[in-house]
């Protein structure tokens, strides 16, 4: 029996998308009240939850304290029920630690850490259901959670994966495409300036193809950033209705800082 045909001659992928189309994205901000910021995102069947605590003073060993900026602490985990076969160890394995490290690097590049010296920001992300593109779902959820927490960032960080099949770059891979062989690249982008926060690829790819692949991933990231932006705006609207337009400040300046309205605590 032949394996899956990842891209048909008519230009449709296994799930019916065109090569450059993203999966359906749905997101909500402020899903938990106790945390400083939280968000939930669905990218197709990949579902992720992100929670942000902080900035607060450094806990645990004091030696980690940085005098000029905040420490970002990330922890990635996957729910035991997130994959088709039950996962034995939800976090702490090699893959999760690597993913935590990647998230840390991504957000160190995006969050304006120098505003909070000697403090710590905790970002916890959990994959509830996994269907490819775990890293990108985590980054996107965490971005929303950080915004929800009111921590200033240079820009949204949007992440998206891209793969390369039959000389065509595919955006936003699902699990079948990720495991179907071929290369897969994860890219986190600050869309406005076009800076790359993180670029990661394990498989071999010829250098001639790299540019087209990065290009496809960047386009996908920009598409995602539009979606995230609309989610943030809608959330703000909802919140401002709740708070009767009290004390909402929102600036569309390059530096996004959506301060959580203090009135919200009163509710």
């Amino acid at each position: 029996m032949a394996g899956l045909e990842l891209l048909s001659d008519q230009g449709y992928r296994v799930d019916g998308r065109k090569p450059s189309e993203l999966r359906k994205v749905q997101a909500r901000m402020g899903v938990f009240a106790q945390a400083d910021g939280s968000a939930y995102i669905e990218q197709g069947n990949t579902k992720a939850l992100a929670v942000v605590y902080g900035p607060h003073e450094v806990r645990g060993s004091r030696s980690r304290t940085l005098h000029d900026r905040a420490v970002i602490n990330c922890q990635y985990s996957m729910a035991t029920f997130s994959t088709a076969e039950r996962k034995r160890r939800p976090h702490g394995d090699r893959k999760s630690s690597e993913m935590s490290l990647h998230l840390k690097q991504t957000f160190e590049a995006a969050v304006l850490t120098q505003l909070y010296p000697r403090s710590q920001i905790d970002i916890y992300v959990k994959i509830l259901q996994s269907d490819g593109g775990n890293y990108s779902a985590c980054v996107n959820a965490a971005t929303l959670a950080v915004i929800d927490a009111g921590i200033p960032m240079r820009d949204y960080v949007c992440a998206c994966s891209a793969g390369f099949v039959e000389d065509t770059p595919l955006a936003d891979l699902c699990h079948a495409e990720e495991s179907g062989g071929g290369t897969s690249l994860a890219l986190a982008l600050l869309p406005r300036g076009g800076q790359i926060a993180l670029l990661q690829m394990d498989a071999r790819l010829h250098q001639d193809h790299l540019d087209t692949l990065i290009e496809a991933a960047m386009t996908a990231c920009k598409g995602l950033s539009d979606v995230l932006d609309s989610v943030v705006r809608q959330h703000l609207q909802e919140v401002s209705v709740l708070t009767r337009d009290l004390g909402v400040c929102f600036s569309a300046s390059p530096c996004i800082s959506v301060r959580k309205p203090p009135a919200l605590y009163l509710l």
């Binding site: 296994v14 799930d15 019916g16 999966r23 069947n45 088709a84 076969e85 269907d131 699902c174």
Partner: peptide
């Protein structure tokens, strides 16, 4: 329009696995 495709599949080791895939319908 989005449809979810669910089916069960036997894995190579003999276990039964439930596979969920998205299935987009287009116009």
């Amino acid at each position: 329009m989005l449809k979810s495709k669910t089916f069960v599949k036997k894995t190579r080791s003999g276990g039964v696995m439930k596979i969920v895939r998205e299935h987009y319908l287009r116009d």
